[in-house]
Write a protein that binds this DNA or RNA. Structure first.
Lengths: 126, 126
DNA sequence: CAACTGTTATATATAGTATATAACAGTGTA
DNA sequence: TACACTGTTATATACTATATATAACAGTTG
C-alpha cells in the first residue's frame, strides 16, 4: 500500500492515513472485500506506531468503510458509493455557499474564484 | 460588546473571540480607533479567563486589526482595505482547500464542482 | 496615590496526538 | 498441537494546544 504521510502537517497522522485509504476505496484502487495491510505490517512499512494505524482503522470501521475481524484481518466493506458521494456533495455545497456570500459582499467575480480554484486544484498535493 | 461563545465547539475560544471581533470590525459595528473592552472587563463579561482574551487580542494585533497600548487600552486599527481583501481571500482559499480535499478523496471532478458553483452563483439571492 | 489600562511570568489542568511495550484473543496451517 | 499470523486491550510516557488562575510588573489618567 502506497501512503505519503507528512508529520509536519497540522492534519493528524491517523487522519492522513484515514483519508488516503478512503481515497483509495473511492477510486477503486481498493476493491470491496479486499484485504488491507495488517496494522503491524503497515506500521512497520511507513514507520508509524501500531496504535496510530489502529486508530485510523478504528475510525474507518466506525464510519463503515472497512471491517476488522480479529485473527483474520481488515477488509474493505461493501458500500453504496453513490450515496456517500452525494453526502459529500452537500458538504461542498455548504462551502460554496459561504464563498458565494463573501464574493457577493466584496464584488469578487465568479471568474476570479474559478481561476483561483483551478490554480489551487492543480497545485495541491494529492 | 456582544459575543456568543460556545465552549463545546471544536474552534478554540480565543479564535471564536478573534473571529467575532474581526467580523464586527469589517461590518463597521466597531469603527476605526474605537476602544475595545479591556481584557479584564471582557473576560468578566463573558466568563472567560483574562489570558484567553489576551491571546485573542494578541493575534488580532499581530494581524493588524487592533492596536494595544499599555495603560490606555485596545483600539480598532485604521482600516486597511488591502488587509481586509487579503483576509477575505484567505477565507475563500480555506473553503476551496476543503472542497479540493473532499473532491480528491471522493473522486469528484473539477468540472463537476465548477458546474455546481456556477449554478449556485447564479441562483443565490443577492 | 488610586484605579484603571496592558504585559509578563508561573503554575496547573485537560484533551488530542503519538509513541512504546506487553499481554490477550481469534484464525489458519504445517 | 505449536506456530505465525491476524486484531484487541491496557498501561505508561511525552509533547502540544488550549484554558484557567494568580501574581507581580508597568504605563496612563484623574
Amino acid at each position: 500500500m502506497k501512503l505519503v504521510i507528512s508529520n509536519s502537517s497540522s492534519v493528524p497522522i491517523y487522519e492522513q492515513i484515514k483519508n488516503a485509504i478512503i481515497e483509495q476505496i473511492m477510486s477503486g484502487e481498493l476493491e470491496e472485500n479486499e484485504a488491507l495491510p495488517s496494522i503491524r505490517s503497515l506500521a512497520q512499512d511507513i514507520k508509524i506506531s501500531v496504535m496510530t494505524i489502529k486508530k485510523s482503522y478504528d475510525e474507518l470501521e466506525k464510519e463503515g468503510y472497512i471491517i476488522s475481524r480479529q485473527g483474520k484481518g481488515t477488509f474493505v466493506a461493501p458500500k453504496n458509493m453513490e450515496l456517500l458521494k452525494e453526502q459529500k456533495q452537500k458538504e461542498i455545497e455548504t462551502y460554496l455557499s459561504k464563498i458565494i456570500d463573501i464574493s457577493h459582499c466584496y464584488q469578487i467575480s465568479k471568474e476570479e474564484i474559478i481561476d483561483l480554484f483551478e490554480f489551487m486544484y492543480g497545485s495541491e498535493d494529492k
